[in-house]
Write a protein that binds this DNA or RNA. Structure first.
Length: 256
DNA sequence: ATGTCGGGCACAGCCCGA
């Protein structure tokens, strides 16, 4: 079983990259974030022709998430339960497929909008934590994955890339990330690669890619039974070297 | 001082968000 997540920074700009990548990797599921379009602008027919069901929660200009699934599914949520979504952002979609809750998230960055913007991020984390605990207490299999906009530790960013006050490395953000682990989820990449320095995002500016000044902010978290089946997890860095890339690259997980 | 993208608005070049 193969699973992947990718913040594509506009699906319309990245369509050919995603198509080629899908045909190469053939995951059972692909989570997409920052599709930056409305539902009727999403290229659903192309993905259907590649053998995927398409589940979209879009928004004009910003945000937007989608799931491509090779398997039949039940749509459970197009917004995060128990979240006061004061900005009406499209940042969450959850389906159930093959007896797994597949929870696709685009966590707020938290650097814009001052204190209120940061609080919006923390509120999202709290609601996500509640969703995690609800599923785990009911012994549900689940995968929480997407762009968390959190570097869990200093191992997960190039030194000097972010200022100390950045919302991606604030203690409250990091505590939020660890709260998912403390509640019982497993960070697929870090579990299999405890010492490695790898990133999933490189800013478009300041020659970040050329200098390898990156961040690990895209994560796949697994519930206990799925974690026991974890075989491989890798970050497909090659996508960032292509022409007109997203600033994020895919993260892929293989389970038994 | 901000070196890059993407989208919106509106039709050129700024603005926002990342």
């Amino acid at each position: 079983m193969k699973f992947a997540s990718w913040n594509v920074n506009s699906i319309r700009q990245r369509l050919s990259h995603v198509q080629i990548w899908l045909q190469k990797e053939q995951p059972d599921w692909l989570f997409l974030q920052e599709i930056k379009c409305q539902n009727n602008q999403f290229p659903s027919d192309i993905f259907k022709s590649l053998g995927y069901y398409v589940i979209v929660h879009g928004q004009k200009a910003y945000n937007g998430v989608a799931i491509l699934s090779r398997h039949p599914y039940e749509l459970l949520y197009t917004d995060l339960p128990n979240f006061q979504n004061t900005k009406n952002h499209a940042r969450y979609i959850e389906i159930k497929s093959q007896n797994i809750h597949l929870c696709n998230l685009y966590l707020p960055n938290g650097n814009s909008g001052g204190e209120e913007g940061f609080q919006f991020k923390l509120n999202f984390i709290q609601a996500l934590l509640k969703r995690t605990k609800d599923l785990l207490s009911n012994k549900q299999n689940c995968i929480f994955a997407g762009d968390f906009n959190i570097c869990p530790t200093d191992q997960d960013l190039t030194p000097g890339t972010l200022t100390s006050g950045d919302a991606l490395i604030q203690p409250e953000s990091r505590k939020g990330f660890f709260s998912f682990l403390w509640s019982g989820l497993t960070d697929a990449y870090r579990t299999l690669h405890p010492q490695d320095i790898e990133y999933s995002f490189w800013d478009y500016t300041k020659g970040a890619w050329q200098r390898n000044a990156g961040l690990r902010i895209d994560h796949v978290l697994l519930s206990p039974k799925l974690a026991e089946q974890l075989q491989h997890c890798w970050i497909d860095k090659e996508e960032r070297a292509k022409t007109q890339p997203s600033d994020h690259v895919p993260i892929i997980v293989e389970l038994e």
